[in-house]
């Protein structure tokens, strides 16, 4: 039972990961901005499911709340404010920076080479595994939020406070930037 659950979990992760990749590709290559935002929403929901498969229940919930609930709505609002018909892109993509594309391709090739090496070469180092027994501290599955809060408020207290200041500054900055100019 446990074994089959673990197998199902890993397959589910792959399924949701591929869905997230599909959403991301839709986001980048869609013609209209609204379709891009919908692809983004899809990607974020699939990623939340991935977090769930990795045993991060609280983060999955937070992902849905923050992204699907907040950020996507903000993006849709801005798409609404900015007149869509006005920015018909003559050429959607700017491929006239071949060095940039080449750089990305080179980086991807380097990563894939490393990945290939660790996976398939005869002297492959021991691949990292997600050992369930190691995750005892996290495996308080029904107390995931409790465990996170302990980490957040005990060990990451200073970053947490700094983040709250950053949020405040961003709030004020967004209001100032988006305010209509007084003439």
């Amino acid at each position: 039972m446990e074994q089959s659950l673990a197998v199902i979990g890993s397959h589910l992760f792959l399924v949701f990961g591929l869905l997230a990749l599909g959403g991301a590709a839709t986001m980048v290559f869609a013609r209209s901005a609204v379709h891009s935002v919908v692809g983004f929403l899809f990607c974020m929901l699939a990623l939340a499911s991935c977090y769930l498969c990795l045993g991060a229940e609280f983060l999955a919930t937070a992902q849905i709340l923050v992204y699907a609930g907040g950020i996507v709505v903000l993006f849709l609002f801005v798409v609404m404010i900015v007149e869509l018909s006005k920015y018909k892109e003559q050429t959607r993509f700017q491929l006239h920076t071949p060095w940039a594309v080449g750089l990305v391709v080179a980086g991807a090739a380097a990563f894939i080479a490393v990945f290939w090496q660790t996976y398939f070469s005869p002297s492959a180092p021991q691949a990292l595994t997600l050992d369930p027994t190691l995750a005892q501290g996290l495996d308080v599955a029904n107390q995931n939020a409790q465990a996170i809060s302990r980490g957040l408020y005990a060990d990451f207290l200073l970053p947490f406070e700094i983040l709250s200041v950053i949020l405040l500054v961003a709030l004020v900055g967004a209001v100032v930037l988006a305010k209509a100019e007084r003439t």
Binding site: L128, L130, A147
Partner: peptide, 9 residues
Amino acid sequence: RHSGTVHGQ
């Protein structure tokens, strides 16, 4: 998940 601590989350 790999390291078994909650810090990453």
